[in-house]
Amino acid sequence: MDLTLRGVEFAYPSVPVLKGVSFELNGGEMLAVVGKNGSGKSTLIKCINRILKYRSGNISVQREEVKNMGRREIAGKMAYHPQKTSYNFPVTVFDTVLMGRYPHSDWSGDKEGEQRVWEVLRLLNLEGLALRDYNEISGGQQQKVVIARALAQEAKILLLDEPTSDLDIRYQLEVMEIIRRLVKESGISAIVAIHDLNLASRYCDRIVMLYNGVIFSAGTPREVFTPENIASVYGVDASVREHEGTVHIIPKRPI
């Protein structure tokens, strides 16, 4: 078991956000966390890599409690794609991706780091942008660069918070396919917080549906994406169809 969550609770001062979340994740598995705005998706991801300190429950990575791990140790095991990245100063695309190598660097730097950065840039078709200023490329390109940084980190678990929110439909498919291929080929695992239910259904093995900080439903896309669940969680009347083995959600109207 790569990742185990048991009864995780988190509250911002006086506002409870997560109320006893438990699930498990295996190597080679891709899991989507879905739910409406404010349901605790980003908070859950930030608790897993301890950007936020959860109040109770426990989270363990390869049987080791995250609470007892140092920041660098956590970074060696889990890579993170935040919802937003912006810089105060000019930083090139290459240097942004190179940041992902920090957990592998010692005082003298990271010998294989640059090589690895080039490989990732090539994988995501970004090598032509390597010397461009991150602040001057398009929002979609920025998002791919941040994904590249997470991949350069070479972690066992990818934590991706809205990795496709700024991408056009082609890039959405491309990025999700690359992530899925990596997960399946190298046996790593990925947790993706995502709003697009159809992308979640198409690319993820399992779905965790959050509602006000608790797991409303969990299982395969077919089990979770039912018209009843979507109506209860999102307040949307939707029909669900199967096409070529994939569940498709067609939202109709707000209830």
Binding site: K46, N49, R50, I51, G70, R71, R72, E73, I74, A75, G76, M78, A79, Y80, P82, K84, T85, S86, Y87, N88, F89, V91, D95, T96, L98, M99, G100, Y102, P103, S105, G109, R149, Q153, L159
Partner: peptide
């Protein structure tokens, strides 16, 4: 120097990359 580079990416990114 590496920590400062990573901090350029923002507080959350730096924490997630292992910087105190």
């Amino acid at each position: 120097r590496w920590e400062y580079n990573v901090l350029e990416g923002g507080e959350e990114t730096a924490k997630a990359l292992g910087v105190n």
